[in-house]
Design a protein around this nucleic acid. Structure first.
Lengths: 344, 344
DNA sequence: AATTAGCACTCTCAATGGTCGAGTGCTAAT
DNA sequence: ATTAGCACTCGACCATTGAGAGTGCTAATT
């Protein structure tokens, strides 16, 4: 059906197109790649590839452009990149420069995202552990001023989140300590979503709460485990704006909506996390479930704390992206994050 | 020099142009606004206004377009907008919906920014109190795990920031308490920049530190007062993309760079804060000191905690923006934030 | 049977030129 | 000081054209 030779031609076209976004003609292929074939033969092959859906021509008698299906074949036949020295250097630098902030996990994610985008020249995103995976480790409660208290929630992943809560009435530090003790024994090891669910249920059941302290405890904990903050870091918008595909205003609007909504990208990275697949995943154009992103590709992987997948990291770019490089960098970054999280 | 009548014509042109971005012709003015003058007279006036630099014509025999100087005159002659019912509603909603999160100051800023942009249809930004103005209130130190401790810094403005620090060696909670006590007595009421400076100095002076506890205290405090987080909230990129001026790709790139750099916008809002000017300020196009922003206008105001200016809020849009509305909304938002911060 | 040279054909792109209309500037009349 | 009248300017729009790149087909070659 699809011979080795055909595949080679396809890959040549994809590579050339990734290099510069002009439709690729039969002549160019014979010149630039050493097939010992004439343009006419290449043309025949190309015609077959079009028919099979791997290529398309923008119009009669322009060259060919890869389709999503074409990119897919290309990516699948990629002998999963031996990380080039360039990329090795990237991780090395990453490790060196970020060693000092590995305690501040949010900052670590942010910086990693920035470096990943500036090095890959694509949009990059890191999904930090969210309520769905984050695991309650301990909580501390501190009296602040008046009726206000501060909750300090620690998760197993190393996240530390503080929130200020107005209780509406005075409470002693002693009572707070008792509440914290209760919560710590009650919720240790559960993930935050479970906790939230459980609190909801208990609050609903015992409408007339017997124990005032417990009711307060639940209320406090409910607030404390709410993650109101963005748990995604995105960077590199100005990088992708440089790409020629973004001379089209509509494209720009698409991607900026995705960035401002964040939601969309979270959704993508999240679904990846749920799939549990450990290796680098590639979503090409229309393979993407989010309609706003059907023009783009995403290369992503999950990172772990110990053996538990806790977040994901990805690169987003046009379907015409340097998959080989992207896959390699995402892989390395995920490994880096896993290492950072695990060795603490 | 500049007669009342000329001013009226200028304002009419500005208004019309703000309404839709087409060069305004003499005929349109006479039709839409009730000057009892013929197009020819209007033309004469317009020619004068061009000569004085308030208008320009894109080319011979197109209509006129306001220059920055023209907008300036327009803004200055604006009888500072009696807040329309529309805007009143905005603040009312704002107050109602955000009442519940006034304890979580970061969230408050973020939500305020979002609402401001979605209501004004321009880009909005809120600069939250930064190290330069934030005042040390108290610090709490908690043992975390191993050599790690968590610092919890409270500022007078209501910010609560936590950081995780790896001390490199074990420390007891008791020592941490002593350190916190020391820092609290030492730095209470100082602003964070001062503290940072002082610590730097002291660390440099006593290279051979006599007191091990104090040296540790300083080190901890130095980390704790570092504000690594963005202290600016920006929202509404997709709003401004809707504007016709952003069908030009270059413009989009400009504004996105400004947004991704944040820095630029921080700089603008910061300079405003330093000027100390209390009322709403308008920077039109080239009046703007940041070159990347010379195509845009900013309407901004500071907000206070009590009597002390602590941050600023602004709207950024094309020079062709609805200044009247923007001024009003920024004013109201600043008042709102001041109220929220002060009544705690 | 697969490959290739040859060639007519198709389609885009950029340049050209012509028309239309909005809006101007000037001049002379009011 | 204002205005009517009018020639003029310039961009927007459109159709035409020619060049060039690349094709698909056919017939010749290996």
């Amino acid at each position: 059906m699809l011979e080795e030779r055909d595949k080679k031609v396809l890959c040549a076209i994809v590579q050339s197109y990734i290099n510069r976004p002009d439709p690729v003609g039969s002549g160019f292929i014979t010149k630039s790649y050493s097939f010992s074939l004439s343009p006419a033969t290449i043309r025949n092959i190309m015609a077959d590839l079009v028919e099979m859906g791997f290529l398309r021509q923008p119009h009669t008698s322009a060259g060919r452009v890869p389709t999503d299906k074409g990119y897919r074949l290309y990516v699948d036949s990629l002998c999963s990149g031996e990380s080039e020295p360039d990329n090795r250097k990237f991780v090395h630098d990453l490790a060196g420069e970020l060693e000092s902030i590995k305690n501040d996990i949010d900052l670590l994610f942010e910086e990693t995202t920035k470096r990943l985008s500036s090095f890959s020249h694509y949009l990059s995103a890191v999904l930090s552990p969210n309520a769905g995976v984050a695991t309650f480790n301990k909580i501390k409660l501190l009296k602040h001023s008046g009726n206000q208290i501060v909750t300090l929630l620690f998760t197993d992943e190393g996240l530390v989140k503080n929130r200020t809560i107005d209780l509406g009435s005075e409470i002693s530090q002693r009572d707070l300590n008792r509440i914290a003790l209760y919560l710590n024994s009650e919720f240790y090891g559960f993930n935050l979503d479970e906790i939230r669910l459980r609190i909801m249920r208990e609050m609903a059941e015992e409408k007339i709460v017997c124990d005032r302290l417990i009711s307060r405890a639940l209320r406090i904990c409910k607030e404390a485990v709410a993650f109101p903050y963005d748990n995604i870091f995105i960077s590199g918008f100005s990088e992708v704006l440089r790409l020629p595909e973004f001379s089209d205003v509509e494209r720009i609007k698409d991607i900026s909506r995705a960035i401002e909504d964040k939601h969309l990208i979270v959704k993508l990275l999240d679904s990846l996390l749920e799939s549990g697949n450990t290796s680098v995943q590639v979503l090409i154009g229309s393979e993407n479930s989010v309609s706003e992103m059907k023009q783009f590709s995403m290369v992503a992987a999950i990172y772990k704390k110990g053996d538990k997948p806790v977040g994901s990291v990805g690169i987003i770019g046009p379907t015409r992206m340097d998959y080989s490089k992207a896959i390699c960098m995402v892989d390395l970054t995920a490994l880096f994050l896993s290492r950072m999280l695990s060795e603490r």
